[in-house]
Nucleic acid binder design. Structure first.
Length: 761
RNA sequence: GCCCGGAUGGCGGAACGGUAGACGCGGAGGCCUCAAAAGCCUUUGUCCGAAAGGGCGUGCGGGUUCGAAUCCCGCUCCGGGCACCA
C-alpha cells in the first residue's frame, strides 16, 4: 500500500530540520547579493490569527523565492511588545505586563513556526527588552540635542473619571473614555514632541521615488496637506499697536474680504473684545472650551450659535476699509495663524456665515455664464478688485502676493496640515522618556552612561489607569545629572510608534552593544527591498518610520544616503467576516490552529495565496472551509503524482520523448516566474493546478521518462516557496537523502521552448 | 462635500485591445466498492433546440476601434480614505 500524504508528520519533520540547520539564518558578510524582506513586526496578542497567516505567507514566499533566486535574504522577526492591552490586563487581573507579554509572544512565535515561516531568530527584537529600550532612549537624546525633540504645553485628552490622559485611540467616536465612559475633555499639559514638521517637504517630495501602492502615497500626501498661500497683517481699527495675522490660499480674493474670524483660543481675543461684547464673547469662549473635540468637529447646529462678534474691526489693507471681527468655533488655532480673512463670495463656509450674520458679500471672481450657485470657487477673471481686475486666478494670486511683499504687509508662505508628533504617553508599559527634572536646571537629559532608564517591576496598578510610575518613590526620586541635587524623573513613556520607527534598523545589527546599529551594516541591507503589512499603517507608522530614517541619516547615525526606509511596500487586503473586519476585538476569529491540525499549514498557505489578489479584501464565508479543503486535495494530488501513485490506463501505450511536455513545462516556468514578480499568486497557483491536471492526463495515457520527471520536478520547484513542507519532502524522496529543494536554484525558462506557437491567419 | 478603488456564472475569481468565464468551490452524472469514505472520469454562463446548431451575455447609457470586460464621456450602486485645514 502506497504511502499517503500526512501533512502533520511532514510539516513537523521539516520545521525541525530548518530550525536545527538554521536554514534561513543569514550573516552580514554573506557574499550573495543582499535582499531585505520584512513583515511589519506584530503586537503580540496571542496565537497568530488569519491576518498574521496571510502576511507571513506572503513574506515567507518572498524569502524562499529570493533565496532560490540566489540572494542572501535578510528575514528578521520581532515583537512590538509595548502597548496598552498588556497594561489594561494588568489593571484588570493584577498580572504584571512583562510575564503577560512574554507569554503572548511565546504563543505567537509558536504559531508562526507551525506555519513554516522562516526567520533569522538570532536577530529577534522586542520593544520591551532593556537593550532595545536603551537604544530607543539613546536615539531620543540625539533627537533632543538636534532640536528635533522638544517640550511644550499641549492640549491632551483628559478623562476626569480615570484622572489620566488618554491616547486618541482610547477616545471612542462619541467622545467618551473607552474604559470609564466619562466624557473626555481637553487639558493643557507639558508634553514631549518630535519635530516631524521640519521634514514635511522631504516627506512629501520623496514619496515620488517610492514603489508603494498609489493609494498609500495619496493618503500620506493628504495627511501632510501642503498648501501654498500668503500671510499678511490686518491692522486693528483704532489700535495702531495691534494687528491680526491671517493665512489664505486665495490672496487674489482679498478685495472681497468683508469680515475676519479668529479662533476662540486666539491670544488677541481679550484685546479685541469690546466692553459691550465682553459677556457674550466670554460665554462663547467658555462654551467652546467645554466642548469635546468631537463635538466641535462635528458641530452642525445653526451657524448663529457657532460664532460671536467681538465689537472690533480690522482694516482690509487692499480696500483700506474696516471690516468686523468675529470668533467662530470652526476656525482652528492649530492651523495657519488661527485667524482668517473671510471672503464669502469665493468660500461657501464664509458665505453661509455671512448670510447667518447679515454680512455683505462681494464677488471678486466672475462666475461663468449661467452660474446659479452661491460661493464660486472656480477660476475666472477678477472683478471688483481695482488693480487685479481682469486677471485670472494664478496671475491674480501672484500679483496680490507681490503687492503684499512690496508693501511690507505680508509674504508668500506654505502651510501644512501635518502637526508635530506628540510622543508623551501617561502610561507604564512603554519606553520611559530619559529626562530628569531639577528645580535648578529644568529638564535635564539622562546621561548616555546611565541608560537604559527602566521602569521598576514592583508597581501597583490602579483601577483608574493612572500610571503607577507617578507613585513609585524609588523611580520618581533621583538626582540631577548636573548638580547632583534632588530631582524627579519624567514619568511619561513614549508612544509605541517610536519603537516601531527604527526596529528595521536594529535588525541589521541586533547584537550591537556600542550603538543602535552599525551604519555600515545598515548601508548593506537598507532600504528594505520588500516591506509587507496591513493598510491600517498607511499613515502613522510609515510616516514616522520615514521621519526617523531621514533624521537619523542627517545626524550621521544612519547612512547619509539612506533617505527612505522601505523601497517597496505591499499592503495586503483585510479579511472580513459577516461584513466586518475579522479581529480579536470583534470576537470573530477563525483560529489557524485547527487547519494546522487537519489539512496542514501548506494547505492553509496555499488557500491564502489562491483565494484572490493579495491586495484585495476577502470575505471568510461558509464556503471558505471547502476551498481550504480543495487546496489540501490539490496537494494530495501533487503527492500522488510525485510519488508515482498515478496509474496508467490499461489501454495506454508507452510514449517516447515528448516535445509538447517540454514546451508546456517551460511555458509554466515563464508564466509562474512572471506571476511571482507581479504578486499574482492566485493565478500562479491556478497555473500549477492546471499543469498538474495535464500531467495526470499524460501519466494516465502512459507517458513516462525523463521529460515527465523534469516536468514534475519543475512543478515542485515552482511550488516550493508557496508550500515549503510538502515540496521539501517530495524532493527528498525523489532525489535522495540530503537533497534540499530550498537550496535549489529557481528554474529559468528556455525562451525557445517557452514561446507560444502562433499561426498567422 | 472632496479624493481614491471596485462592479464579470450559483460563489471566490481569470482574461495588461484579439476565442469572456482560466483555476477552484458548489451542483449533476458515471466508474470503483457489498456499501460508504477517499480517489478517478465526464459535465456545468444563460435562453431556444432531441441533436446539430443558433440567439443573448462582463452594473446602466453613449462613444472610439476591423475588434472593447479592457480605452474615452456621462450615470447608478458598493467599499475605503480625508473631512470645518482658510
Amino acid at each position: 500500500m502506497a504511502e499517503g500524504y500526512d501533512a502533520q508528520s511532514v510539516e513537523r519533520k521539516w520545521q525541525l530540520r530548518w530550525r536545527e540547520e538554521g536554514t534561513y539564518q543569514v550573516d552580514n558578510d554573506d557574499p550573495r547579493p543582499p535582499f531585505y524582506a520584512l513583515c511589519m513586526y506584530p503586537y503580540p496578542s496571542g496565537p497568530a490569527h488569519q491576518g498574521h497567516v496571510r502576511t507571513y505567507t506572503f513574506g515567507d514566499l518572498i524569502v524562499r523565492h529570493r533565496t532560490m533566486a540566489g540572494h542572501a535574504v535578510l528575514s528578521p522577526m520581532g515583537f512590538d511588545s509595548f502597548g496598552l492591552p498588556a497594561e489594561n490586563a494588568a489593571i484588570k487581573t493584577g498580572v504584571h505586563p512583562r510575564p503577560f507579554t512574554d507569554a503572548r509572544i511565546a504563543e505567537l512565535k509558536a504559531s508562526i513556526e507551525r506555519l513554516g515561516a522562516m526567520y533569522d531568530w538570532r536577530r529577534e527584537v522586542r520593544s520591551h527588552d532593556p537593550e532595545y529600550i536603551r537604544w530607543t532612549q539613546w536615539i531620543f537624546l540625539r533627537l533632543l540635542e538636534a532640536g528635533l525633540a522638544y517640550r511644550r504645553q499641549a492640549p491632551v485628552n483628559w478623562c476626569p473619571g480615570c484622572q489620566t490622559v488618554l491616547a486618541n485611540e482610547q477616545v471612542l467616536p462619541d467622545g467618551t473614555c473607552e474604559r470609564s465612559g466619562d466624557v473626555v475633555v481637553k487639558r493643557d499639559l507639558e508634553q514631549w514632541f518630535f519635530r516631524i514638521t521640519a521634514y514635511a517637504d522631504q516627506l512629501l517630495d520623496d514619496l515620488d521615488g517610492l514603489d508603494w501602492p498609489e493609494r498609500v502615497k495619496v493618503m500620506q500626501r493628504n495627511w501632510i496637506g501642503r498648501s501654498e498661500g500668503a500671510e499678511f497683517d490686518l491692522p486693528v481699527d483704532g489700535r495702531p499697536d495691534l494687528a491680526v495675522r491671517v493665512f489664505t490660499t486665495r490672496p487674489d480674493t482679498s478685495f472681497g474680504m468683508t469680515y475676519a474670524v479668529l479662533a476662540p483660543e486666539h491670544p488677541l481675543v481679550p484685546d479685541l473684545t469690546t466692553d459691550e461684547q465682553r459677556d457674550e464673547v466670554e460665554a462663547f469662549v467658555a462654551r467652546v472650551q467645554t466642548e469635546t473635540e468631537v463635538e466641535r468637529q462635528s458641530a452642525e447646529g445653526p451657524l448663529e450659535k457657532r460664532g460671536v462678534f467681538t465689537g472690533s474691526s480690522v482694516v482690509n489693507p487692499f480696500t483700506r476699509k474696516p471690516v468686523p471681527v468675529y470668533l467662530a468655533d470652526y476656525v482652528l488655532m492649530g492651523y495657519g495663524t488661527g485667524a482668517i480673512m473671510a471672503v464669502p463670495g469665493e468660500d461657501q463656509r464664509d458665505w453661509d456665515f455671512a448670510v447667518a450674520y447679515g454680512l455683505p458679500i462681494i464677488r471678486t471672481v466672475q462666475p461663468p455664464e449661467g452660474w446659479d450657485g452661491e460661493a464660486y470657487t472656480g477660476d475666472g477673471p477678477a472683478i471688483n478688485s481695482e488693480w487685479l481686475d481682469g486677471l485670472w486666478k494664478d496671475d491674480a494670486v501672484a500679483r496680490a502676493v507681490e503687492w503684499l511683499e512690496e508693501q511690507g504687509l505680508g509674504r508668500r508662505t506654505v502651510n501644512y496640515r501635518l502637526r508635530d508628533w506628540l510622543l508623551s504617553r501617561q502610561r507604564y508599559w512603554g519606553c520611559p522618556i530619559p529626562i530628569v527634572y531639577c528645580p535648578d536646571h529644568g529638564a535635564v537629559p539622562v546621561p548616555d552612561d546611565d541608560l537604559p532608564v527602566l521602569a521598576p517591576d514592583d508597581v501597583e496598578f490602579r483601577p483608574t489607569g493612572e500610571s503607577p510610575l507617578k507613585f513609585h518613590e524609588g523611580f520618581l526620586n533621583t538626582t540631577c545629572p548636573i548638580c547632583r541635587g534632588p530631582a524627579t524623573r519624567e514619568t511619561d513613556t513614549m508612544d509605541t510608534f517610536v519603537d516601531s520607527s527604527w526596529y528595521f534598523l536594529r535588525f541589521v545589527d541586533a547584537d550591537n552593544h556600542e550603538a543602535p546599529f552599525d551604519p555600515a551594516m545598515a548601508a548593506r541591507w537598507l532600504p528594505v527591498d520588500q516591506y509587507i503589512g496591513g493598510i491600517e499603517h498607511a499613515i502613522l507608522h510609515l510616516m514616522y518610520a520615514r521621519f526617523f530614517t531621514k533624521a537619523l541619516s542627517d545626524l550621521g547615525i544612519a547612512p547619509k544616503d539612506l533617505r527612505e526606509p522601505f523601497a517597496r511596500l505591499f499592503t495586503q487586503g483585510l479579511i472580513r467576516m459577516g461584513g466586518t473586519k475579522m479581529s480579536k476585538s470583534r470576537g470573530n476569529l477563525v483560529a489557524p490552529t485547527r487547519y494546522f491540525d487537519t489539512v496542514g499549514a501548506d494547505a492553509l498557505r496555499l488557500f491564502h495565496l489562491f483565494v484572490g489578489p493579495p491586495a484585495d479584501d476577502f470575505d471568510w464565508t461558509e464556503q471558505t472551509d471547502d476551498v481550504i479543503e480543495g487546496c489540501g486535495r490539490f496537494l494530495a494530488r501533487v503527492w500522488r503524482l510525485a510519488t508515482g501513485q498515478v496509474a496508467a490506463q490499461p489501454e495506454a501505450t508507452d510514449a517516447g520523448p515528448d516535445d509538447d511536455l517540454r514546451r508546456a513545462t517551460h511555458r509554466l516556468i515563464a508564466r509562474v516566474s512572471d506571476e511571482y514578480e507581479r504578486w499574482s499568486y492566485n493565478t500562479a497557483v491556478a497555473a500549477c493546478m492546471e499543469f498538474t491536471n495535464q500531467l495526470y492526463k499524460q501519466v494516465q495515457s502512459g507517458v513516462t521518462g525523463p521529460d515527465l520527471d523534469a516536468a514534475v520536478d519543475t512543478l515542485l520547484l515552482l511550488l516550493a516557496p508557496m508550500v515549503p513542507h510538502i515540496t521539501a519532502e517530495l524532493w527528498e524522496r525523489r532525489h535522495g537523502e540530503g537533497s534540499h529543494i530550498h537550496a535549489e536554484r529557481w528554474p529559468v525558462a528556455d525562451p525557445a521552448l517557452a514561446a507560444v506557437q502562433t499561426e498567422t491567419m
